[in-house]
């Protein structure tokens, strides 16, 4: 069972699913040099968003903590703690900011 990301219309293979710990993230290097942050929730669903924290410019979102707010999954940046919705990429603490999301599947 591997985690795959949709990049440039193909499924890009990242790693074995077992590498992911539920509730925590990992960073992946994409073919175009960008970085994605991958997460697994406790129900086994995977999510991927851009790894770059828009508030600090550091590539650290994969090192944030997962949470649930109003039934939706989010990650909180480890630097200044802004939260990002894992499904939409929207920042829950600042309407003007969002990060990119990537379709992800486990196959």
């Amino acid at each position: 069972m591997n985690v795959q990301l949709r990049v440039a219309d193909t499924w890009f293979e990242v790693c074995e699913r077992a590498r992911l710990t539920p509730g925590r993230g990992l960073a992946a290097l994409l073919p175009d040099g960008r970085q994605a942050a991958l997460f697994l929730d406790r129900a086994g669903r995977a999510y991927a968003i851009d790894n770059l924290d828009p508030f600090t410019g550091a590539a650290v979102l994969s090192r944030g903590l997962l949470g649930t707010a109003d039934g939706r999954p989010f990650v909180a940046s480890p630097l200044l703690k802004q939260r990002f919705d894992l499904e939409t990429g929207r920042c829950l603490d600042d309407d003007e900011v969002a990060v990119e999301t990537h379709p992800v599947r486990i196959a």
Binding site: P54, G57, R90, T101
Partner: peptide
Amino acid sequence: DLPLLAIGRRPLEGASR
């Protein structure tokens, strides 16, 4: 050496897919 911050801010439309 910190990158310029503007690169992370994206328009909302492009964000949710």
